[in-house]
């Protein structure tokens, strides 16, 4: 799967993801990726959300509530798009998935992780969980 999967995203959407990570710093910021899948997976909009984890855990955990999930699902439907993934930031940590990320991830979604160092978004990488849940496999990001 590693060489076959790719996530296409506009520069504007990626900029919004970086801005959200910087605004949330030193906490983690998160939201949904909205788009379509026609051979390749295309991000056409993002849906930034408030990190709903309790204060003491927000620096290294994020939570999207079911109500926010529903709002995003309805917004995607309104736009004629689908939820195709989740983005979140890693404040002062690399943009690799943690074990906690793997525990909670699902095979279908793309997981875009942005490293935010000292409040500045550095780089994003995207990952998908393997079907057997044993590992994340990186998918190439193509910026349009």
């Amino acid at each position: 799967m590693a060489n076959k999967v790719m996530l296409k995203i506009s520069k504007d959407a990626l900029t919004q993801i970086h801005a959200h990570g910087e605004q949330a710093y030193p906490d983690e910021g998160a939201g949904f990726l909205l788009g379509m899948e026609n051979g390749s997976r295309d991000v056409q909009a993002i849906f930034p959300l408030t990190n709903s984890r309790e204060d003491s855990a927000r620096h290294n955990r994020y939570l999207i509530t079911p109500n926010d999930y529903l709002k995003a699902e309805l917004e995607a439907e309104r736009l004629g798009l689908s939820l195709i993934g989740v983005f979140h930031s890693h404040p002062d940590h690399p943009n690799r998935p943690s074990e906690f990320d793997r525990d909670w991830a699902q095979p279908f979604f793309s997981y875009v992780i942005t490293s935010v160092q000292s409040g500045k978004a550095i780089e994003s990488r995207s990952w998908r969980l393997s079907e057997d849940r044993s590992q994340f496999i990186e998918e190439r990001i193509q910026i349009n």
Binding site: R53, L63, I64, P66, Y69, V86, H88, W104
Partner: peptide, 10 residues
Amino acid sequence: IILMASISGG
């Protein structure tokens, strides 16, 4: 009726 899973990570 809508079924939704919670989303979390770290």
